[in-house]
Design a protein around this nucleic acid. Structure first.
Lengths: 399, 399
DNA sequence: TTGAATATTCAAGTAAGTTGAATTAATAAG
DNA sequence: CTTATTAATTCAACTTACTTGAATATTCAA
């Protein structure tokens, strides 16, 4: 796949300044709504007048609405504002080898619609036509006139570019080697598009509406086809130089351990992932397909599944430890296509190294917690990415 | 130590826009000097006129100088500009438990002066007075009138804040628990100050003048007291939520392996670090003090040292692999207080996992290379941080 | 009832960017 | 050798969006 990465550092002007300031205002409203002009001015460093002008514009665009006057001691009561949840929507699309998922999410990150479509093959033309269908059904009747469509976030299996991981063949899409997915989807959907991997999308979903609300630096361990890591640092999504950051599944936690499909021994993925669980259970003659199969086994207290959890706990603890040491996040979130109960059990059975830089007194957030967005996370996360981009001020960089 | 971290997202205005654009222009000049107005305008997206105004201002400030007209085909010959190396200087200070180092660096990152001062104790008052002495001798006679002093970069042993790593006591400074180092040094040196850890400073030093010139995303494995990792992603230094990112020394690479001072088993630092080398050689009755002791042993082909290198190679390869998988950098740099020959030997003996996302064809830079800034890296890096901050446009965030 | 406090708006001023025309100096073409 | 074309730079006018200080509105406290 082509990577449209090489960002070039560009200058700013009045127009770009306004764009930035709009995002700043939206971001502050989102964090402390309902909130008045004066307070936004104080925390943003802008003049009240500037904030006032921007709010007028945002109200015009239906992204903000009044939330009534509220007296707080002396002085003119504050005229508060909040996000207009239904003022804008974002489309999220997840592409898996065998199916595509769609989600429509509003400004507040609330899910308005979800769908699933089978995917006969992975050719760009097929994916694109299904994407168009998803778009159509998501928007049908919903927002002909009033609602603004901010864009679409597409979640596709990585890693991107030409890489050496052979075992990843099962997750990468065929026929996309020479296409630029962003361009393809922008053309097909006729709206701005961002493309991300599942782990990153999940992380952003948690920031927009889940347990990472208000956090600026955190990590998300995502149980998908393999095991991915989404990283948000200082509010910025981390992608790496070639868009392949966060490949935690192939980090070696047991040197000389189990053989991984990638050819190395002891990859985390061979212990803690759906593949690992499936392999473990298949050894006991149990076939699992969907996540609900795992859930049923867990409810039934299946001994083999429990053993897998036990085995996964050590490597996973080690992974959390290294994430904490390398990224120093406010929290580490576990989530993805794994039942909540299993995730909770995994978290409870973690044996976190005490020596990590994260073992600090007076933490505001737990070191490890379960994601709150459930299993639809990926498609939802795609939409969340768009919301996030709308609301979070970005560095002045351009493709 | 107090952390002056919590950044708040602020708005922009004309003044801040100009500041940003100045940095953009400086950055482009630095990368492609000598360069003319028109080209800067093209790559920065600014109008020629804006670039022209900014260049006039920068020339006035003596940060840029003309580099002659140069005809390139038709049209008016380009009037090119380059950084005025001696137009500004930055001070770098490294604080170690027993000594302090100072460096003065110019805009181009060239070292103008270095010094070493003994440090009787670590109390803030002592450190501050030695810092003042370093400042005085560095600037003595040098820049009374013409040269602008951009600020100082102070490199101090982390980790910062209250953390659980007990073994780190040897590297952390005593008496600094309740002080904010930035404020202390700004007061003492009477200039803007940034404080960083050694690994990060080293990484930035390589970006300003070493092998990472022009790279936007890379990692630096630093052999200091322990083992640190400096991370630069998309041109931004990564610090983590609490300023302790990059603690790679305590990442576990050999579960159940050697006991580390931090209480865990199998930390990378117990295999690949100066401490590890010292322990290994002490076991053979050889005491080493400075890095030159190691160099002499290496020159002599000491068998114990060679064995240590052999032993360190595996864990280090694993560390490089995980760095590549998690950060997806353009390159990984090895450096710090370890002789070049040993670093080269270590790099040559690495057995890098083929399955990493970094094992891609057509790479522009080597996967792993040795740092070029030598052993003074830390103090130099401090100064480089200041140069870097002057030249690289930053996100609009404020302390 | 009056004065202080606070939020918001109004109106004028300013910084810094953009745009389009004019100027300058090369190379290419006739 | 002259003229046309091309490209960089500057000049002057214009625009955007922010700041500032005064005016207004509304509440609480004395």
């Amino acid at each position: 796949m082509k990577i449209s990465n090489p960002r070039r550092i560009v200058g700013s002007n009045a127009e770009r300044t306004r764009l930035h300031n709009r995002q700043v205002v939206l971001g502050h409203v989102r964090e402390r709504q309902p909130i008045g002009r004066a307070e936004i001015a104080r925390i943003s460093g802008l003049s009240t007048q500037a904030v006032s002008n921007i709010i007028a514009e945002l109200e015009e665009d239906r992204l903000l609405i009044e939330a009534g006057r509220q007296s707080e001691g002396r002085g003119l009561p504050v005229l508060k504002y909040r996000l207009n949840a239904d003022g804008a929507v974002a489309l999220g699309i997840e592409v898996r080898p065998d199916a595509m998922f769609g989600a429509l999410v509003n400004l507040e990150g609330e899910t308005l619609f979800t769908t699933r479509e089978a995917l006969p093959d992975n050719a760009p033309s097929t994916v694109v036509s299904v994407a168009r269908r998803i778009r159509a059904s998501a928007l049908e009747g919903r927002c002909g006139k009033t609602q603004k469509i901010l864009g679409a976030g597409v979640v596709m299996p990585g890693p991107f570019g030409k890489v050496g991981i052979s075992g990843a063949g099962q997750s990468a899409l065929h026929g996309w080697e020479d296409s630029d997915p962003v361009a393809v989807f922008e053309e097909a959907l006729d709206m701005p598009v961002v493309v991300e991997n599942d782990a990153t999308a999940a992380a952003v979903a948690e920031r927009v509406r889940g347990v990472a609300t208000g956090l600026r630096t955190f990590c998300f361990i995502y149980f998908g086809a393999g095991l991915g890591l989404g990283v948000v640092a200082e509010g910025e999504v981390q992608r790496g130089a070639f868009g392949n950051a966060g490949e935690i599944g192939h980090v070696i936690v047991r040197p000389g351990g189990r053989l991984c499909a990638c050819g190395n021994h002891g990859c985390l993925e061979t212990y803690a992932s759906r593949i690992a669980a499936r392999t473990r259970l298949a050894g006991a003659g149990i076939e699992i397909g969907s996540a609900s199969d795992i859930e049923n086994l867990y409810r039934a207290g299946n001994a083999h599944l429990m053993e897998w959890i036990d085995e996964a706990s050590g490597p996973l603890s080690q992974a959390v430890g290294l994430i904490e040491n390398l990224f120093d996040p406010e929290t580490v979130i576990l989530g993805g296509a794994m039942p909540d109960a299993v995730l909770d059990h995994l978290i409870a059975s973690l044996d976190l190294p005490g020596g990590s830089v994260a073992a600090r007194a007076g933490r505001a957030t737990p070191r490890v917690q379960r994601g709150s967005c459930g299993r639809l996370t990926a498609a939802l996360g795609g939409a969340a990415l768009v919301i996030h981009d709308t609301i979070t001020p970005r560095i002045a960089a351009k493709t």
